[in-house]
Design a protein around this nucleic acid. Structure first.
Length: 266
DNA sequence: CGAATTTGACCAGCGC
DNA sequence: GCGCTGGTCAAATTCG
């Protein structure tokens, strides 16, 4: 899986990790090496093949299935319960959600960091950890603790470069960033190191900015261009919402209004 | 004591 | 059909 994920990468400067909180260790190590790549259900289809250095063509297939998502889930649960009245245990266990093929838009970031769990302003609860194939490092599964917010994220280390943390977000937050995060919101701001202001190419020089979220308005066909134009690699670090105002969820969540660091003191 | 994490088990999808 | 792998659940445990 991670293999495929790598096929779709876009250079970006996502929210790095400020480190506030957990560990100061390695913060210095933090490099603006951060990439983001969108993952979509059919991404494997659009990939151009050469991972690490060919233009990552991506299909911003927006899920467009958020609705049946929850419904399905619910339905399933109900079904399970209904039908497994006696075998409570089995029923309970089988009430997985895992929509057939997650249509949820996914965005992954590769961040060079010592710490696994990058602070992004939200509260996450870990609900699982799994050893992944092709990697000596386990993958952790987190879920947004806010009720009604089904955003999930996965955190794993690159099997190629252990110093790189791959964080994959799935879904969109439907709430603002918790006010108090390990003290204060400044933490969130602090989560964006200056380094991210200057995205730099990594991995074979791939140089794409992430086209975050699904952009229904943007024809995925080589939407790279579209995203590109919207970005400014400059210090502004504007995330490419491609004009959309509804679909930029993820990043908006990360940057409620304007990137915190823009207002930071030098 | 409540919230978060850990960890083993379970289940579904996929390839052979 | 079987085995492997990824993803999730939930009881137990730890932490604040």
């Amino acid at each position: 899986m991670s293999d495929e994920m790598f096929k779709d990468l876009f250079l970006s400067s996502p929210f790095g990790y400020g480190g506030l909180g957990d560990s100061e260790t390695g913060l210095d190590e933090y490099e603006s090496l951060a990439r983001a790549f969108e993952l979509s259900s059919d991404y494997s289809n659009e990939i151009s093949g050469t991972p690490m250095n060919s233009s990552a063509s991506f299909s911003s297939s927006d899920a467009g299935a958020d609705e049946d998502d929850s419904l399905k889930d619910k339905d399933k649960q109900i079904k399970d319960m209904d039908d497994g009245g006696e075998s409570s245990k089995t029923a309970a266990k089988s009430k997985k959600k895992v929509e057939k093929k997650e249509r949820e838009p996914r965005v992954a970031f590769m961040t060079k960091s010592e710490v696994d769990h990058l602070e992004d302003g939200y509260r996450w609860r870990k609900y699982g950890q799994k050893a992944v194939k092709n990697s000596a490092y386990p993958r952790s599964y987190y879920r947004c603790t806010t009720q009604k917010c089904g955003v999930k994220k996965r955190v794993e280390r690159s099997y190629e470069d252990p110093s790189i943390v791959i964080t994959t977000y799935e879904g969109q937050h439907n709430h603002p960033i918790p006010a108090t995060l390990r003290g204060n919101l400044s933490a969130a701001s602090g989560a964006f190191p200056p380094s991210m202001l200057a995205p730099m190419p990594v991995v074979g020089g791939v140089r794409y900015l992430p086209q975050l979220m699904n952009n229904t308005s943007v024809n995925n066909n080589q939407a790279v261009g579209g995203g590109e134009s919207v970005y400014s690699q400059s210090s502004s670090f504007n995330y490419p919402y491609n004009g959309r105002q509804q679909d930029y969820g993820l990043l908006q969540d990360i940057f409620p209004t304007a990137p915190p660091f823009l207002n930071r003191q030098p």
